[in-house]
Amino acid sequence: MAKQPSRREILGVAAAGLASVAVPTLATAQTPPTPTPTMETKFAKPLSPEAKRLLEEALKGIQNSSQERLKTKLPENSEPCFDYIVSPREVKKR
């Protein structure tokens, strides 16, 4: 009978799995964004060279936001406004 892996071993495998995902992701994050061949398949028709150039710029913008937003730390455990419903605000007596 094969030995059951311990919890520690499972966590080790999981960590290695995470690392294998994280490494290429980090590498990608450090290289300029380019419209990948995979991206091209998202569109019914190939993008024109000018559209590709502008797409690169737009992707840079999205990546910049991704980095910039990290400067604003949000409180632990805060929740997103999925169903944003405004509520009345009583003005305090002055």
Partner: peptide
């Protein structure tokens, strides 16, 4: 075109 494509 570029903006919507990138937004994906």
């Amino acid at each position: 075109v570029a903006g919507f494509a990138a937004a994906m």
